[in-house]
Simulated assay, not measured.
Amino acid sequence: MRVSKADASKARHLQRDALELAGVDPKYFYEDQASGKREDWPGLTACLKALREGDTLAVWKRDRLGRDLRHLINTVHELTARGVGLKVLAGDGVVEGAPSR
């Protein structure tokens, strides 16, 4: 989960509710309170480090995972290379794992 100071309370609850509804155990929640423009997200760093092959990373929306499109693409590429799936719960459709052709 990532929230900014401006939307912290509302966005935190929306993200938490969506993750719990998707079956994510709260002990696996990682959180940052930071602008999308900041470079250091210690929660995301710890989360990515904890993921193992066969795991699936669930995020509320794609913009919670990357600072910008390049960062998002690089992160997804890293996850794929490590055998980690990705599940986006809301936004412009649900994306799971690798794109289908």
Rank of each mutant, 00 (worst) to 15 (best):
L51D: 03
G36M: 06
A34W: 07
G54H: 02
E53H: 13
S35T: 00
A50P: 00
K49S: 12
A18F: 12
T56C: 09
R62S: 11
R64Q: 06
W60N: 07
K27M: 14
D32G: 02
D63A: 04
L65M: 06
G36N: 03
R38C: 08
K37M: 12
A22N: 04
L57Y: 04
R16W: 14
E31G: 08
R62I: 11
G23A: 09
R64Y: 03
L65I: 05
L48C: 04
A46I: 02
L19F: 08
G43T: 01
Y28N: 14
E39F: 12
V24E: 07
C47A: 12
D55W: 05
L65E: 00
K37F: 15
R38W: 03
Y28E: 09
K49Q: 14
G23P: 04
V59K: 01
A50K: 09
Y28I: 07
L51K: 01
D17V: 12
G36H: 03
L19M: 08
Y28P: 04
A22P: 04
K61Q: 15
D17P: 02
A18L: 05
V59Y: 01
D25N: 15
G43M: 06
W60E: 03
D55G: 02
D17C: 10
E53T: 13
R16Y: 13
F29Q: 03
A58T: 13
R64S: 02
R64L: 06
F29R: 01
E39T: 12
L21N: 11
K61D: 07
L19H: 06
W60A: 04
R64G: 02
L44V: 06
L48S: 06
K27S: 13
G23F: 09
R38S: 14
R16C: 12
S35G: 01
A50T: 02
L57R: 02
D40T: 07
W41P: 00
T56M: 09
L51I: 05
K49R: 14
A34C: 12
L65H: 01
L44Y: 04
A46E: 14
E20N: 10
G66N: 03
D17M: 15
W41R: 08
E53M: 13
L19D: 04
R62H: 09
A34M: 10
D17T: 10
R64P: 00
G23W: 10
Y30G: 06
L44E: 09
A58K: 11
K49P: 04
K27Q: 13
K37G: 12
R52S: 13
L48G: 03
F29Y: 08
L51F: 04
A50C: 08
E20G: 07
E31F: 12
E31M: 15
C47V: 02
R16M: 14
L48D: 02
V59E: 03
T45W: 07
G23R: 06
E20L: 11
L65N: 00
C47W: 01
E39Q: 10
R62P: 07
R52G: 11
